[in-house]
Design a protein around this nucleic acid. Structure first.
Length: 501
RNA sequence: UCCCCGAUAGCUCAAUUGGUAGAGCGAGCGGCUGUUAACCGCUAGGUCGUAGGUUCGAGUCCUACUCGGGGAGCCA
């Protein structure tokens, strides 16, 4: 008669008695009625506990159950719009499984350091819970995209020999007395598999030892890298565009409510349609140095200064309210508002301090150097669709990228920048298929040829035009969820100086 | 590696030009039958990151260090 079910299935059990197994998310209790919001891993449900004959044996105990206590609860499912999730449970039975006390993460605001030290608990909170579910969908969409198109999954090694693209940014590992490194890409290995299976991809963790402390860096992150044979740069770019569109479509299909819940604009994501913007590196360099960027940043600066002035006024008013007369809850609300306004002000003040530097970097951009993080952010902010930036100078790109046959200075590569300031999510290229050209590049970069003999074999035996790219999963999650920082896009972020929990 | 900012109660933050450390939340107790960050009353809670220095007097000023935040470089 009574069934155990989960919150996401409650709509199948309206007016029936069911049992839920979960944890206390929040409680509010009066003398003779208690509201327990239960989460069970599939959603939230308000359980209403009225003091009556049925509930008398456990009412007092239930009322005192603190946040994150585990419990099973039985009751009649009622459809109720007032309740989160649209259903609630009128409780007839309740069994505590584990009483929790002093759960550290309260419904009130916390600082980032506090939350990061408690990441293992933090992702029980709604916002984090939504983000990690969207992440899971994105990863599923990635796998399906390639599997459905007949790509063969090739797992590339995580222990890699010194030979890479630049050994200084790698994590060294002692390997039975030899030094190896944690892999920063599977690409070279993937190219070999590409010549065996034609269309392949690898998907796994990637490690970078760069000492970067910014909103877009992790030391350990997930990357998916497709590689396709008999392909030109245009083919690879087309693949990237189809790929991104399929991920966005899937996320919009499966997670509309969650996206709204975490404050992501659906309109912005629905605007992600082909064709994406395309520009060459040279065009990007001209854009950065030109009047459009200067004007954009000057406007940005002026707007931010206006905003700070507004916030100053708001803070003053709220402070006065918080100290003045009125109800206790009104004063509290004013105080909370003041804290929020101060946070926004300090964030914007920091941005204002950085703008002149970013303007200078953009205005003085020199052809031949790589686009900086701030340069990419500027280009990204000027668009509301992803931007392909192609044909970078060979001097600032890896040795394996295919030389542009019409201009020796360039390579056939691309970066894909997510719009609205989110920046780079993909880096890719056509690979140099010509043995002599590749060997010349190796020598030019002073790379040890003996370490790359196996790679050169790929150009000795049946070399064909081919190419691929790498997509950073966390950066994609950050973009699609509209996060301010990449650390929320992965369950256990690893950053410079951070590896607990 | 470099530049900027910060560290005050378990948490989030205040503390006028250097002059006796405060509020809210959380916790504990009591009250309230429809709450949505519930509300009302009471109670407990502090070596102001660490070490020096200036001063009659330092949370406040100076120096170094530790930890954290943002950015540059580098990158997905």
């Amino acid at each position: 008669m009574q069934t155990t079910t989960t919150i996401n299935k409650l709509h199948e059990h309206v007016d029936k008695t069911v049992t839920l197994q979960g944890w206390v998310y929040k409680t509010r209790a009066s003398g003779k009625i208690a509201f327990i919001i239960v989460r069970d891993g599939t959603g939230l449900c308000q359980c209403v506990l009225e003091r009556n004959e049925a509930t008398e044996p456990f009412f007092d105990e239930a009322k005192k159950l603190a946040q994150e206590s585990a419990l099973t609860v039985t009751g009649v499912v009622k459809a109720d719009d007032r309740s989160v999730g649209g259903h609630e449970l009128s409780v007839t039975g309740l069994t505590p499984v584990h009483a929790s006390t002093d759960y550290p993460i309260t419904p009130k605001p916390h600082g980032i350091e506090f939350l990061m030290d408690r990441r293992h608990l933090w992702f029980r909170s709604q916002r984090q819970w939504h983000i990690l579910r969207i992440r899971a969908t994105i990863i599923d969409a990635i796998r399906r995209f390639y599997n459905d198109r007949g790509y063969v999954l090739i797992d590339t090694p995580i222990f890699a020999p010194a030979a890479g693209e630049g050994a200084q940014t790698l994590f060294p590992v002692d390997y039975f007395g030899d030094q190896v490194f944690l892999a920063q890409t599977g690409q070279l290995y993937l190219e070999a598999a590409c010549m065996a299976h034609r269309n392949v991809y690898c998907f796994g963790p990637t490690f970078r030892a760069e000492k970067s402390k910014t909103r877009r860096h992790l030391t350990e992150f997930w990357m998916v890298e497709p590689e396709i044979a008999y392909a030109s740069l245009d083919d690879v770019i087309q693949l990237a565009e189809d790929f991104i569109c399929s991920i966005v479509t899937r996320v919009l299909k499966d997670h509309r409510d969650e996206l709204v819940e975490i404050g992501r604009s659906l309109d912005d994501l629905e605007a992600i349609k082909p064709p994406f913007v395309r520009m060459t590196y040279t065009e990007a360099a001209e854009l950065l140095r030109g009047p459009r960027v200067k004007e954009f940043l000057e406007n940005d600066l002026a707007q931010k200064k206006t905003r700070v002035a507004e916030l100053d006024k708001t803070i003053e008013e709220l402070d006065a309210q918080a100290k003045g007369g009125g109800k206790q809850w009104q004063k509290e609300k004013a105080a909370a508002g003041a804290i929020e306004a101060r946070e926004e002000r300090s964030e914007i003040t920091e941005q204002i301090a950085n703008i002149p530097h970013h303007m200078e970097l953009a205005a003085n951009f020199e052809w031949g150097t790589d686009l900086g993080g701030s340069d990419e952010t500027i280009i990204s902010r000027l668009h509301d669709r992803p931007i392909f930036v192609t044909h970078y100078p060979a001097s600032c790109r890896a040795f394996y990228m295919r030389g542009d046959r019409s201009d020796d200075r360039l390579v056939e590569n691309f970066d894909l920048l997510a719009p609205q300031g989110f920046g780079e999510i993909i880096g890719g290229s056509a690979r140099e298929e010509d043995y002599d050209r590749l060997l010349a590049k190796l020598k030019h970069e002073n790379l040890p040829q003996d370490q790359y003999e196996w790679y050169l074999d790929l150009r000795r035996y049946g070399s064909v035009p081919h190419g691929g790219f790498g997509l950073g999963v966390e950066r994609t999650v950050t973009w699609l969820c509209g996060l301010k920082h990449i650390r929320e896009a992965i369950p256990y972020p690893r950053m410079m100086g951070k590896f607990y929990p």
